[in-house]
Design a protein around this nucleic acid. Sequence first.
RNA 1: GGCAUCGUGGCCGAGUGGCUAGGCACAGCUCUGCAAAAGCUUGUACAGCGGUUCGAAUCCGCUCGAUGCCUCCA
Length: 493
Amino acid sequence: MQLYQNQHLKVYNSLSGKKEAFKPINEGHIGMYVCGPTVYSNVHLGNCRTFMSFDMIFRYFKHLGYKVRYVRNITDAGHLVDDAEDGEDKIAKKARLEQLEPMEVVQRYTVDFHTILQKFNFLPPSIEPTATGHIIEQIEIIKDIFEKGFAYEANGSVYFDVAKFNKTHEYGKLSGRKLEDMIANTRELAAQDEKKNPQDFALWKKAEPQHIMRWPSPWGDGFPGWHLECTAMSTKYLGETFDIHGGGMDLKFPHHECEIAQAEASNGHSPVNYWLHANMLTMNGKKMAKSTGNNILPGEIFTGDNKILSKAFSPSVVRFFMMQAHYTSILDLSNDALLASEKGYFRLMDALDTLKGIDTGKTSDFKVADWRQECYDAMNDDFNTPILIAKLFDAVKHINLIKEGKEQLTAADKETLEATLHAFIYDVLGLEGKTDTGAGTNKLSEVVTLLIELRKDARDNKDFATSDKIRDQLAAIGIQLKDGKEGTTFSVS
RNA sequence: GGCAUCGUGGCCGAGUGGCUAGGCACAGCUCUGCAAAAGCUUGUACAGCGGUUCGAAUCCGCUCGAUGCCUCCA
């Protein structure tokens, strides 16, 4: 018996605009595709939020007992700087500017991406395919779309005929757009356009002679259009129709719209049952942009080497901060917000330590079974992590009351409580313990315990100058002493 | 200009018709040698205007503002 058989999950489907009961195509199995990064620069913090949301979703599915195939691609070709005729590939442009081979650019920023995600304690996806590794599959899809009559060739490039597609299908249904409106609002683009209509998008682009990234095709040397890779890779690894497709809100149009069009044009049916979109991250109320300086790299947060924040914050604190907001809401990052999250996070983790040491009683004042289900209810309601965290703080309060002897808990309830907290905090939210110092922990603990004993002796002798010195000096290096009825404990921050 | 999402107490952020999450900050109290930690108590907030309703933060309309997309972007 798996958990998912008792826990009834609802997800917000961007396609219908409603929360829907989640039912996978094959019971017990989930296919999930998330659009990964274009590796032409350091991973953006907003990017991290999107991937973190889906990491949490992936984790919750696994926790529920689903077997999940999670595919997150790496875009290493085909992503153009703009849509004009002289549009340059983002990777190729960076390579030109930095005088590197394009694959050096790809390698450098793929490594950066993985390094940052690892710090954030992301679970690796099941498959992480690259666009350049699937050129053949992309060409096959283009041929297919061609045969179905929804593509045309122009001067060595191939375009998707949106107007024709729209006659029998609904282009724009995901983003709530109508083709007529788009045509009416199209700005004047460069006149010498190969496209029949400005709404048409590239499936294959002809490579100019100076273009380094190029592959042979039935239409000559070129490279694939950006939207195509996701269709090729999701179809290859998850099938023509799969359960979940995720990505950032900004990809809804045109990227995901085009994916739907490509899939429907080539194989005739809708590729995805549930479209999930994560919302944006702003900073100090404004959008993050390199051009205005309102931008920060994840690594700069961890080291504190930046002009925006007052101190360094650990990846777990940033993760906790992000999990305190719902993934579909815009989240605003600021120094105050991070400081607040850090305190809350420490309080939560301290309670986890406290729970280990509490004595159990004959009865329970805390209805653990009910509380546990409330945690699931929160997550089952479209992955509502803010409510889950509120529930976790309910437990924190009870744990502290039990420690003070004002409430009690049976041994069985203690076990359930501990297991549930661990499951949600570590497995689902993906947070890590704040004192994860490895082998050093035991020796540190012994030293501090010794200091606590010395301080107690000093206090017993009313030598408060000495006792306060011990307490304050420890505090200065981040070790906080906590005097309780049962003696003194400490925590490291 | 068009489309979309949103605007909640000092800050961050849940909540979608009546029962008013949570975190942080602030204040008072308990505990303490003094603190810290912990606990208890206190905050009647929902951009503005109008409408629907017995009743609205929650539904509708307008205004203002923010963010995203419309050209690359998570």
